Simulated scan of single mutants.
Amino acid sequence: MVSEKTLILDARQVQEKIKRMAFEIYEHNFKEKNVVIAGIDGQGYILAQLLLKHLQEISPLEAKLVKVSLDKLSPLQSEVTLDCELRDLKKKCIILVDDVLNTGRTFAYGMKPFLNIEVKKIETAVLVNRSHTLFPIYPQYTGYELATTIKDHVEVNLGKETAVYLLD
């Protein structure tokens, strides 16, 4: 069975969403000296890089990019790792970033390393929120709210062929 692919956001729309999210991050953190943009490995990390780029264009905030690596399919069996030292993030504002929020499981496990140190706050940013949360995760920064069935799949491509698709 071939799944249907429906375009939800084209490249221009994705860029507009990311730029707006960067402005929102700055508005909510303008009193901070620096923030940490922590992208979940894969499309979440690419989104974090794009958010960082826009944030640097519009604000004086110092922003540190961090990659969060975990096994999305079996997060309990794998270690959640960061590509920096935990002590470098102490008392900082952390913005955890992923491409799609479905159940909240990936975000919940992605927060694990940050819970081992004293941080100022942890916020979440997502390009597409599907609102099927099973974990108490609500994104502070959302590019696009999309009502889907639990069986639907959202595909985010950030790169040469930037777009968001709904597969059903």
Rank of each mutant, 00 (worst) to 15 (best):
I40Y: 02
F23S: 10
K31C: 12
L65D: 02
P75D: 03
K64L: 10
A22H: 03
E27I: 09
I37Q: 01
L65F: 06
G42V: 03
S78H: 12
G44Q: 01
G44W: 00
A38F: 04
L70K: 02
I46M: 12
K53E: 14
L52C: 12
V36K: 01
L61S: 07
K72F: 08
Q77S: 13
A38L: 07
I40L: 06
F30E: 13
L61R: 05
L61F: 11
V66P: 00
I37E: 01
V36H: 01
V68D: 00
I46T: 10
P60T: 12
L76K: 14
H28E: 15
F23L: 15
E24S: 14
N29P: 10
K53V: 12
K72Q: 11
L50Y: 03
E57Q: 10
K67T: 10
H54Q: 15
V35F: 04
V36S: 00
S74R: 15
Y26N: 08
G44P: 02
L65H: 06
Q56M: 11
K67I: 05
L50G: 05
S78Y: 08
I46V: 14
A63S: 03
Q43C: 12
V36L: 01
D41T: 11
P60D: 12
S69K: 07
N34F: 13
L70Y: 03
